[in-house]
């Protein structure tokens, strides 16, 4: 049985993954901002078969509470071996271009809060010499594009941080998974017109569950993004700067 901490538990993708854990009878500690939504997710997971579901209402940008939250999760579940970091906001690129304050806020939510959590979780797992850390990053972090480079910057920083962390924790037997999600149809992207590249949150959430089970390092979800991003990364900057993607 796993003891799992999920940050951003009301995200559509995390909810799908959490249901899979619950069906396995795992113990879950859920963290999210909105108390009513968090409670409805928790009740559902309890009925799905989770052995234990506990919740904590918290805004992840309150980084000074992270240590306390992780300790609390470990205490009430009687252990902690898996962490899924799934929170995030989709930055409004135009607003960020107009205001550094807005950019800073986006970087705080999508990058710094994640790095703070990772710092504490990594130290905790390193001493235990076991554990799995999975973080939802994004294909947007693979190359900066004019349409959302602030969001991309945050995700790129998270991806690089995770690479280093994976390298550091390898010898301690801790598994670090970077989930590079493509376009996912969730409330976060409700205002977009959806085309053929879009995947459902079920597909991506189930993919995350599988990668945690198989102890993967870096996964693109759905799989075809690995090849799309390979091509995009290979384009020379002289060509790329003229594109409109």
């Amino acid at each position: 049985m796993r003891h799992i901490l999920i940050i951003g538990a009301t995200s559509a993708i995390a909810e799908v993954t959490a249901r899979r854990f619950a069906r396995d009878g795992d113990r879950l500690y859920l963290v999210a901002r909105n108390p009513e939504r968090l409670e409805s997710v928790a009740s559902d997971l309890r009925l799905c078969g989770a052995t234990q579901v506990e919740t904590m209402v918290m805004d992840v940008n309150g980084t000074d509470r992270h240590v306390e939250m992780i300790a609390q999760a470990e205490t009430v579940m009687g252990g902690l071996d898996t962490v899924l970091i799934a929170h995030g906001t989709l930055s409004n690129q135009q607003a960020c271009e107009a205001s550094f304050k807005e950019t800073l806020r986006e970087l705080q939510t999508n990058c710094l809060s994640v790095i703070s959590l990772l710092t504490h979780v990594a130290n905790c797992f390193e001493t235990k010499k076991r554990g799995t850390i999975a973080v939802i990053s994004s294909v947007a972090g693979d190359r900066g594009r004019k349409s959302n480079y602030v969001y991309g910057t945050a995700k790129a920083a998270v991806s690089v941080f995770l690479q280093g962390l994976r390298n550091r924790l390898y010898r301690s037997g801790v598994n670090v998974i970077t989930i590079k999600a493509g376009f996912v149809d969730t409330p976060m992207t409700a205002d977009f017109c959806k085309g053929f590249l879009w995947a459902s949150s079920e597909k991506v959430g189930n993919g995350i569950y599988r990668s945690i089970q198989r102890k993967r390092d870096e996964v693109y979800l759905p799989w075809f993004w690995r090849w799309i991003m390979l091509v995009i990364r290979l384009l020379p900057e002289g060509v790329f700067k003229k594109t409109n993607i």
Partner: peptide, 9 residues
């Protein structure tokens, strides 16, 4: 269809 949570039983 996304409003699909069991609330109590």
């Amino acid at each position: 269809r996304d409003l699909n949570r069991m609330l109590s039983f």
